[in-house]
Design a binder for these strands. Structure first.
Lengths: 219, 219
DNA sequence: ATCTAAATGGTAATCGTTATCATTAAGCGG
DNA sequence: CCGCTTAATGATAACGATTACCATTTAGAT
């Protein structure tokens, strides 16, 4: 599960809270620097969202005190250039402004993640090859023999890694038909693919399920 | 296997011979009354085709000597009204003239068959009912539980009984896709349906295969 | 008549889908 | 925070259409 820490005084952050939760993140929200530090020491965070509305000194502390390479995104007033510059000078990795677009936030997180992790994803990508003829995926030293639909599902998810792909989208783009109210076929293909992953000593959650939304691929 | 006896002197009947064979009939051809009588006593004939070009006395004998209710169709010169009248007076069931259209011949055979057998087919029809909801066919006292495709295949053939239905036609009308060069799916559905027929003590050849042409339903 | 190639019959494997039930997570009222 | 209800998901197995494969039959050629 991916954890995100939000440090914000505003009640309006509830909206952001729910949207991120819906995207599969486990969101922790605090409203002071102390609680934030506790969370930072306790959890492995995917990212930290810091609203600059918290007292400047606290913000400063936070940015200095962080030991990890966890990306910090500051929520600043876009019209207040001073805040933006301050944020970056204090060590923030990026900044956003209200209202926060969840989609944009996710994209920036992906960019930061790739940057901060070196290029782990790129390395991984080089160790993954797709054999369209035999519906086989080779990752590192394992090779996954899939059926045609499993293969195309897996490949589609892989090519959209980091994003949450809707079931409706998968049904349309991979199976070429509409998603019915009670269709479970996708779940079955995912389930079977995960079983094959497990049998190859690979993590089942290479394919992550985002309840109510769809699935996402991630290393 | 349906047997047909042709009594003809002409070599040109070879054409007719092949066409009927192609339609699934087993065709016996003789050129004299004696051989014809032997065949008539040996086989259960579907029909007899008598070319009036054979000596009048032989034709007369044949028509008189036949014990069975096997329909006799005389091949007469359409322009020779005398022959036509003679044929019917002598007891022929119908007449045709050269060149013989196989399709027309089949239709006339169907008519004669239904007439001669009383209305067995009609009786049968009354004992056959289709349950579209459960893909089940009830004939007389047996009930055939089929799968959806088996059911639709069976019903389509039933509704076209007497005709030879092409595989291409079945594939298009029942399965809604084109018939590929090496497709065997129809054969399998037919095979499985026949097995269910056999399990219900019903004749497998209710569905007749016409090699190279397709299948036909007949009681 | 014998031989070859195509057509057909039939058993079994493959795979997509559906049925069914167990498990999990979110929402809700206390 | 706690138990309840309901929808979403995981997973085993049944089901059914298609395909693979091999045996058998048949038409046509030599």
């Amino acid at each position: 599960m991916k954890h995100i820490l939000i440090i914000d005084l505003h009640a309006q952050a509830d909206e952001l809270f729910h949207q991120l939760t819906a995207q599969g993140y486990y969101v922790h929200k605090v409203n002071n620097a102390f609680d934030a530090l506790v969370k930072m020491e306790t959890l492995t965070l995917e990212a930290i969202l810091l609203d600059f509305a918290v007292p400047k000194m606290d913000s400063f502390w936070l940015l200095v005190a962080r030991q990890t390479s966890t990306p910090v995104i500051v929520i600043a007033d876009v019209n207040n250039e001073l805040e933006r510059i301050n944020a970056l000078e204090l060590g923030a990795d990026d900044y956003l402004s209200h209202p926060i677009n969840v989609r944009e936030l996710q994209l920036r997180l992906n960019v930061l993640k790739r940057r901060s992790q070196g290029s782990v994803n790129d390395d991984m990508r080089q160790h993954v090859s797709f054999d369209d003829a035999n519906y086989t995926v080779n990752l590192i030293d394992k090779s996954l023999v899939l059926t045609q639909t499993e293969y195309r599902l897996f490949k589609y998810l892989f090519e959209h890694q980091g994003e949450v792909v809707t079931k409706a989208e998968l049904q349309q783009r991979v199976l070429h038909k509409k998603l019915g109210r009670f269709d479970r076929n996708l779940d079955m293909h995912i389930s079977n693919t995960r079983r094959k992953l497990a049998k190859g000593n690979l993590p089942r959650d290479l394919i992550n399920t985002v309840r109510g939304q769809g699935y996402s691929f991630s290393f």
